[in-house]
Amino acid sequence: MTALRIATLFPLATVAAGDEANAAALVRRAAARGLTTTTATVHRPGAMAPAEVYLLGGTGRSGTGALVAALWAVDLPARVAAGAVVLAVDAGLDALARSWVDPAGREQAGLGLLGVQVGPGPRITDTVATRAAGELPAMVGWVAHDVTTRRDPGVLALCQVERGQAHGPLEDDGVLAERIIATRLHGPVLALNPELADLVLARAVPGLPPAPVPPEAARARAQRLDEVRAAPQSRRRRR
């Protein structure tokens, strides 16, 4: 078959959080099934690379406006409607929401691909452990934001949170939609949690056989999960 195309969109628009490494993590999980891939990093709408899987990320509110404008310029909604799959991390989630909040606290329109409203919230930096459910095991990642995330009725969360604050006071993280998987978790989240990479891949290439998680990645994740579960609540909740 032809190679699966993976494109990281506009990483320089937002504040760096290591999410560009998600592309390589996806490539590794595809290779474990013998799938060939190509990767591209798109910096400008004029240099758009069509793909089956788009990756968004970064943190903070300062770059979300530029990210939204760039995603409109490449008509991401039309690409999703045509079957593309998107992983949206943190600032990427904000951009795809119905509304997000700019650095001055004003509500702004997002792409509206997710039934989510993002509002201002307390500043949180934390390690998060999620609960195993469905195809996903307990996952780990970190969050750093100052927003709240409100899902519309009927919109599914990606996972439940066991420890740490992903969405602030809410006890879940992210959004699981048909073509879009969104999360607040950085890590890079696909590198630390290969099963989430598998979930993204499965949206683009149905019927993938299972593949073992490398013991090194499993160990790194297990260590962080043990630590965050062992930490007292007050320490985990500090800023």
Partner: peptide, 11 residues
Amino acid sequence: FGPKDTTTMWE
């Protein structure tokens, strides 16, 4: 070194 301690190594 906190939640992000090895994040920058992955790229």
